[in-house]
Amino acid sequence: MGHLEQAKPQPFWLCRVNYSGELSEPRATSLLSIFVSPDNFRNRVLELNASDERGISIVREKIKNFARQTPRAQAASSDGKTYPCPPYKIIILDEADSMTQDAQGALRRIMETYARITRFCLVCNYVTRIIEPLASRCSKFRFTPLDPTSSSSRLAYIAQSEHIDVNSTVIDTLISTSSGDLRRAITYLQSASRLSSSTNPPTPITPVDIQEIAGVVPEAVVNDFASTLGIETDSMDVDGKGGMVASSFGAIQSKVKELMREGFSATQILSQLHDLVILHPTMNGRQKSTCALVFAEADKALCDGADEELWILEVALRVHKALTSS
């Protein structure tokens, strides 16, 4: 919180995260904790997010109207405590990267004109999607993903105050499956605790439970798929290169069909297969880079909404080809 306190004299704030797209660090949380007085909150803060209509007309009317009103006198708080209250109002634009370019453009002048009485606060995932004139009017705060020690202590704190029995291996699994995303880790913890307390007597939470909730494809399934493609996995002999049968087209196709029937998400399969290939001990550099190319193409295709089965099959065939041809 320290750096935000210092930031108060700055005219505008722009909080952003690094553009690798890390999500759910406590951006919104740290913002709201500046205006702490509950009585002043209502008439001094306007919060708009992607669920509100935020076209250019709203910027021109609603935001402008709010921005030009002089803030009312500070009301004495009803609970008798004193809260810090800066002499201006705040407009919070959550998920600002989903605003249109035109709407952002309309904000430019409004931000400057009423800077004395109204401050803007934009929150976004990708600062590159905020137009340059807006970004240059703001002071920027980058929120990096929480480091594992602080998220693990937070999770332990939650577990303790909710009386959930978790050990450190479970917390480690939570952090690794959620890859630094604290909200996701908390959601998983909540679901897991619900599940474990639904049985009688309550069963302890295990790392396997967490993985199932997180939608991770079980390792055995991925390894099985990989060995069909001709990638050696731990279950095989290391010197079994010659004994490896190059599986035919039919085998791969039926394996892919089976995977799809199980309902695993294609992106999840891809990312786990990718991890397996990249960290593989015996494959050579050329093979790995060919595979990485294939994965990248497939990821793009899936983002564009391509058919999952076709693309998993495509990846499988090309990885297979890369492994057998060289």
Binding site: G21, L23, S24, S178, D181, R183, R184, T187, S191, I213, A214, G215, R261, E262, G263, F264, S265, A266, T267, Q268, L302, G305, E308
Partner: peptide, 21 residues
């Protein structure tokens, strides 16, 4: 039908239930 086309913030807010055939 699949989680590939859902954005990550939605996925992290949900309890995921995989329904296999």
């Amino acid at each position: 039908n699949s989680t590939s086309r859902l954005i990550a913030p939605i996925k992290s807010r949900c309890l995921l239930m995989r329904v296999a055939a």
